[in-house]
Design a protein around this nucleic acid. Structure first.
Length: 900
RNA sequence: GGGCACAUAGCUCAGUUGGUUAGAGCGUUGCGCUCACAUCGCAAAGGUCGCCUGUUCAACUCAGGCUGUGCCCACCA
C-alpha cells in the first residue's frame, strides 16, 4: 500500500469532514441506557467569523465532548448562534452607510428585513468554520436566539418576571451610548482610564449663610461642560472650612442661575476643594444627590451628546467641543482657578468604544437581588464548581453586590419588549414595582392585548425598544430545548424523543466552557435564569479558559491588527495541528500567547504519527503478517513494557481530562507516542519484527489514536480507517464512537525494572561514546556477567547493539577495564583511539555533580531529626537514593581510573 | 480604593496533595540523511525556581511581607 511520506492534512481533513457531516455520529438524544453528558455552545455572533478565541473555546469543548462520547456517555453538544443585538445592527448599519443610507431612511421594517437577509447570507459562515475546526456538535439542532420558539421563551420570561414584580419600568440615570443611541447595562459600560484634567472653577457666592468669607467657591470638575446643568453645589456638613456656606446661594457662571448649597455626608472632604458642583441630569452620583435633596433636573444634551437648547449659546455643539468653548468663556471671565492633569475613569460602550454619557431616561430593569440569592447559594454550596477555582470568588463578589439590570435597548435588532402602552391613559409613568407606580395604561403580555384594561381604549402601541441580547442568551441552556412550548412527540429519528424529555435528560448540562470576559454578562445570569425557571442549576461545572494573546502578550483583536487567523493555520497546517498546539499551550485557565511558529509542534506531531503508522504498515506488509484481532499474546519484556506504559498513560490522560487539565492530557499522550512508542519501541522492533510485535505495535497505535482523538480528530480518524481497511480488524465505524482505552488487566505486567536497566545502559553508552568522540564509530562491546544474565541479555542483543551504535557483543570474563556497570553486567568498549582529555573533563563534571548530590542526601540521612520525623517510606527512599548515587559515583570514578 | 492572578532555562511555558538528580517545546552547539519521519534521530550547554522573613527534619511547593507585571470590580467630583 502506498502512503505519502508527508502528511497532507488539508486533503485528509476535508475528506473526513465530509464523511462526518453525512453521518449521524454526533447526534444525541435522550437515551436511558446511557448517562448524559451535555454542553451548550457559547453561541457566537451570527455574523461573526471564527477567530482564535473561538478556536480555543470550541476545541476545549470538542475535546471534552469527544472524550465523553468515547467513554460511553450520550454526549450532546448543542450548537447555535446569537443575534447579538447592537453588534449585528452596527454591522448592517455600516453596510448601509456605504450606500449613503441611514436606517431611519428606510424605516424599521425594511431595516429588519435587511438584517434578516444579512443573517441568511452570513449567518452560516461561522458555523461552517466551526465544522471545519472539527467541532462535533449535533448540527441538526442548530439554534438561533431569534428563532421563533426561542423568542417565545424570551417573552415568557419577561412576562413571568414582570408578574412577579421583578421587572419594572423606571426613569433613572443609565449608561447611554451617544453613538449607538441606546441605553446600556452597567456591564456594557467598560471603564477605562483616560488622561484628562481636573479643572478648578470659581462660582461667585450670591449670599452666604453666615459671614461671607470669600467671594467665590471653587469647585473641581473633570467635565466642565456639565456645569450648564448644575442645580446645586454640595459640601460635607462636617467640613469646618465651609460652615459659612450653609444656607448660602451661589451663582452659576454663564447661565447665571442661582444654586443652592446642599450638605451631604457623601462628599469627600479631602478631595478637590471639598465643594462639589451637582449636575443631577448628567452624573450618577449627582443624580442620587438630586433625588435626595429634591433638586431641579436640567438636561443639557441631546441623545447624540450634542448640547440642546438648555445649553444656550453652546446649543448644537458636541459635548467635547462645548467643553472647550465653555472653558474659553470661563477663562475670559477669569473664573478658572487652575487645572491639573488627572486620570479619569470613563465608561466606554463595549461595542463601539464611544465614551458613555450618563442620561436620564425611562428604561426597563430587572430587579436582580431576589434572583441572585439562590444563585449565590448554589455556588457557595458547590453545586456549581468553577475551574480554575479562583473565579468562584469573582463570581460571588459580583453577585453579592449586584445592581439592577437595564434590559431595554433603543435599537431595532432584537426581541421587541412585550409591552403595550395605551395612547389614551398612559402618562409616561413608571411601572411594575409596587410602590413606585400605579401601572396605568401599561400592559405586559405575550400577545397584543385587545384593549386597555384601565380605560378600555383599543389604541395600544407596542414599546419601540428591544431587549438586551443577554436577556435572551441567559436562557440558552434550556431555551435551546424548546422551553417552554415543547413540541410533541419527536420524530423518532436518530433515537430522539420529545423535547421535554430531552431537556430533562440533558439538563443540567455538564460543563460550560467560556472566557472570563462574559462571566457576568452570561454565566452568572444563566445560573440565575436556570434556578428561576427550571429550579435547577444550568451546569455543574464552569471551565473558564484564558485569553488569546499575541507574542507580546497583547490581546488579539482585529482592530489592533495582531490576529492570527485560525483559518489560515488550518489551511496551512490543518485543524489538528491548530487544535493540538492550542491544547498544549492552554494550561488551566491561563492565557495563551501565540505566534506563527507555535503551530509547528502540531504540524510536526501530525507528521510523526503519520509516519509511524506508515512504517508499521510497511513492516507488516514486508513481513507479510496478518493481523485479524488485537488479543495480545506471546509478549516479551519489551512488548510488555510498552503495554504497561500505555496503560499508565491511558490512566493519566483519563484523569487529566476528567479534571479539565487538557494540556497535561495532551502532553502525556504526546510523550508516550513520540518517545516511548516511536523512539524506543519502534526502534527496537525494527530488526525483530515478529507477529507478536506487529500486533503489539498496532494495539499501541490504535489506543494512542484513541487517546489523541479528542484533540486531533481528523488524523486519528483517517488512520483508524486505514487500519480498519487494511488489516481486516473488527473496529468501530468511526474512532469517534470507539471505546475509550481502558487498562489491560492481568497478563501484561512488564518487569519494567529490568527493561529500564537496558534503556539506561543504552543512554549511558551513547553518552560515553559521545564523550569519547566516537559516537559514530561502531565498536565492540565487551560484557562480563553471570550465565543467568547472559541468558536474559542474548535475545536483546541486536537492538541494544543498534540503538547504542555498536558493532558486536562479546561475553567475556576478563574486561580490560570497566567503563560501565549496573545490576546486570560490567561493560567495556573495546577501543583504543579515543579523545581521553575531553572524556575525562566530562567525567569530572559528572563526578562533581553527583558528589554534591551525594553529600546532600548523606546530610539528610545523618540528620537525627530527619530520621525521627520523616515518614518511614521517605527515609527508605532516601536510603535507596543514597545507595544508587553512591553506586553511580563509584562507577564514574572507576571509569576515570580506567582511562587514566 | 477593593479584589484576583502571575513572577521557574535565552524565549514561551509545565510542575496535581512539601521529600524529584526541577521538566517540555522553540532557540543555541556538536554529531548523524543508521531500510517511517530532516516536519527526523542522538547528544550537549543553559536555572541560587523574583526578593526577604517565617513554619518544618525538609520549601519551587505552605504562611507573612516586599518588588515588578497583568486582569477585574468600584457613584475617585
Amino acid at each position: 500500500m502506498d502512503i505519502a511520506s508527508k502528511y497532507n492534512p488539508k486533503e485528509v481533513e476535508e475528506k473526513i469532514l465530509k464523511e462526518w457531516l453525512e453521518s449521524p455520529l454526533f447526534s444525541a438524544g435522550a437515551n436511558r441506557a446511557k448517562k448524559p453528558f451535555s454542553i451548550v455552545i457559547p453561541p457566537p455572533n451570527v455574523t461573526g467569523i471564527l477567530h482564535m478565541g473561538h478556536a480555543l473555546n470550541n476545541t476545549i469543548q470538542d475535546v471534552l465532548i469527544r472524550f465523553k462520547r468515547m467513554q460511553g456517555y450520550e454526549a450532546l453538544w448543542m450548537p447555535g448562534t446569537d443575534h447579538a443585538g447592537i453588534a449585528t445592527q452596527n454591522v448592517v448599519e455600516r453596510d448601509l452607510a456605504k450606500q449613503n443610507f441611514k436606517k431611519e431612511d428606510i424605516g424599521r421594517e425594511e431595516f429588519l428585513k435587511r438584517l434578516w437577509q444579512w443573517r441568511e447570507k452570513y449567518g452560516s459562515t461561522i458555523i461552517s468554520q466551526l465544522k471545519r475546526l472539527g467541532a462535533s456538535c449535533d448540527w441538526d439542532r442548530l439554534r438561533f436566539t431569534m428563532d421563533e420558539p426561542y423568542s417565545e421563551a424570551v417573552y415568557e420570561v419577561f412576562v413571568k418576571l414582570y408578574e412577579k414584580g421583578l421587572i419594572y419600568r423606571g426613569k433613572r440615570i443609565i449608561n447611554w451610548c451617544p453613538r449607538c443611541k441606546t441605553a446600556l447595562s452597567d456591564e456594557e459600560a467598560a471603564h477605562k482610564e483616560i488622561n484628562g484634567w481636573l479643572y478648578y472653577l470659581k462660582y461667585p457666592v450670591a449670599k452666604s449663610g453666615s459671614e461671607k468669607v470669600c467671594d467665590y467657591v471653587i469647585v473641581a470638575t473633570t467635565r466642565p461642560e456639565t456645569m450648564l446643568g448644575d442645580t446645586a453645589v454640595a459640601i460635607n456638613p462636617k467640613d469646618e472650612r465651609f460652615g459659612w456656606l450653609k444656607g448660602a446661594k451661589v451663582i452659576l457662571p454663564i447661565v447665571e442661575r442661582e444654586l443652592k448649597v446642599i450638605e451631604d455626608e457623601a462628599i469627600d472632604i479631602g478631595f478637590g476643594t471639598g465643594v462639589v458642583k451637582v449636575t443631577p441630569s448628567h452624573d450618577l452620583v449627582d443624580f442620587n444627590l438630586g433625588k435626595k435633596h429634591n433638586l431641579e433636573f436640567v438636561n443639557i444634551m441631546n441623545d447624540d451628546a450634542t448640547m440642546n437648547d438648555n445649553a444656550g449659546e453652546f446649543s448644537g455643539m458636541d459635548r467635547f467641543e462645548a467643553r472647550e468653548a465653555i472653558l474659553a468663556v470661563l477663562e475670559e471671565k477669569k473664573l478658572i482657578d487652575k487645572k491639573e492633569p488627572y486620570k479619569v475613569s470613563a465608561g466606554h460602550c463595549y461595542r463601539c468604544h464611544t465614551i458613555i454619557e450618563p442620561r436620564i431616561s425611562p428604561q426597563w430593569f430587572v430587579r436582580m437581588q431576589p434572583l441572585a440569592e439562590p444563585a449565590i447559594k448554589a455556588v457557595e454550596e458547590e453545586k456549581i464548581k468553577f475551574y480554575p477555582e479562583r473565579w468562584r470568588k469573582v463570581y460571588l463578589n459580583w453577585m453579592n453586590n449586584i445592581q439592577d439590570w437595564c434590559i431595554s435597548r433603543q435599537i431595532w435588532w432584537g426581541h421587541r419588549l412585550p409591552v403595550w402602552y395605551c395612547d389614551n391613559c398612559f402618562s409616561g409613568n413608571d411601572a411594575g414595582s409596587n410602590e413606585e407606580s400605579k401601572k396605568t395604561g401599561i400592559v405586559v403580555s405575550k400577545q397584543k392585548p385587545q384593549k386597555c384594561p384601565d380605560c378600555g381604549s383599543t389604541k395600544l402601541r407596542q414599546d419601540e425598544d428591544v431587549l438586551d441580547t443577554w436577556f435572551s442568551s441567559w436562557l440558552w441552556p434550556f431555551a435551546t430545548f424548546y422551553w417552554p412550548n415543547f413540541r410533541g412527540q419527536g420524530t423518532g429519528e436518530r433515537g430522539q424523543t420529545d423535547d421535554e424529555k430531552e431537556l430533562n435528560y440533558f439538563y443540567p448540562t455538564s460543563v460550560l466552557v467560556t472566557a472570563s470576559e462574559i462571566l457576568f454578562f452570561w454565566v452568572a445570569r444563566m445560573i440565575m435564569a436556570g434556578l428561576e425557571f427550571r429550579k435547577e442549576i444550568p451546569f455543574r461545572s464552569v471551565f473558564i479558559h484564558g485569553t488569546v494573546r499575541d507574542a507580546r502578550g497583547i490581546k488579539m483583536s482585529k482592530s489592533l491588527g495582531n490576529i492570527i487567523d485560525p483559518l489560515e493555520v488550518i489551511e496551512k497546517f490543518g485543524a489538528d495541528s491548530l487544535r493540538f498546539s492550542l491544547m498544549l499551550l492552554a494550561a488551566g485557565g491561563s492565557d495563551v500567547y501565540l505566534s506563527d511558529e507555535k503551530f509547528l509542534v502540531g504540524r510536526n506531531f501530525s507528521n510523526k504519527i503519520w509516519n509511524a503508522t506508515r512504517f508499521i504498515f510497511l513492516k507488516i506488509s514486508e513481513a507479510n503478517i496478518k493481523i485479524d484481532n488485537l488479543t495480545l499474546n506471546d509478549l516479551d519484556e519489551v512488548d510488555a513494557w510498552l503495554i504497561t506504559e500505555l496503560n499508565s498513560v491511558a490512566e493519566n490522560v483519563t484523569r487529566h481530562l476528567e479534571d479539565f487539565r487538557i494540556n497535561e492530557a495532551t502532553k502525556c499522550a504526546y510523550e508516550f507516542f513520540w518517545h516511548s512508542f516511536c523512539d524506543w519501541y519502534i526502534e527496537i522492533i525494527k530488526d525483530n519484527f515478529t507477529g507478536a510485535k506487529a500486533k503489539t505495535a498496532i494495539y499501541a497505535l490504535v489506543n494512542s489514536l484513541k487517546l489523541l482523538h479528542p484533540v486531533m480528530p481528523f488524523l486519528t480518524e483517517e488512520i483508524f480507517h486505514l487500519i480498519k481497511g487494511n488489516l481486516s480488524l473488527e473496529l468501530d465505524e468511526s474512532i469517534s464512537r470507539a471505546s475509550w482505552p481502558r487498562p489491560l488487566g492481568t497478563g501484561v505486567k512488564a518487569d519494567t525494572e529490568k527493561i529500564n536497566i537496558l534503556f539506561e545502559t543504552i543512554k549511558e553508552l551513547r553518552n560515553i561514546k559521545a564523550d569519547l568522540g566516537i559516537a559514530q564509530k561502531k565498536v565492540k562491546l565487551q560484557i562480563k556477567t553471570s550465565a543467568e544474565n547472559e541468558k536474559y541479555l542474548r535475545p536483546h542483543e541486536n537492538w541494544i547493539k543498534r540503538l547504542s551504535y555498536l558493532e558486536a557483543f562479546e561475553f567475556t570474563a576478563n574486561l580490560k577495564r570497566v567503563i560501565y556497570k549496573n545490576a546486570l553486567w560490567e561493560l567495556n568498549l573495546d577501543v583504543d583511539e579515543v579523545n581521553v582529555k575531553d572524556f575525562i573533563s566530562a567525567l569530572d563534571k559528572k563526578i562533581n555533580n553527583i558528589d554534591s548530590i551525594r553529600s546532600k542526601v548523606a546530610g539528610r540521612l545523618e540528620n537525627e531529626n530527619f530520621l525521627k520525623n520523616a515518614s518511614q517510606e521517605t527515609v527508605e527512599e532516601e536510603k535507596n537514593k543514597f545507595r544508587e548515587i553512591d553506586f553511580q559515583l563509584n562507577r564514574l570514578k572507576e571509569l576515570k581510573n580506567a582511562f587514566r
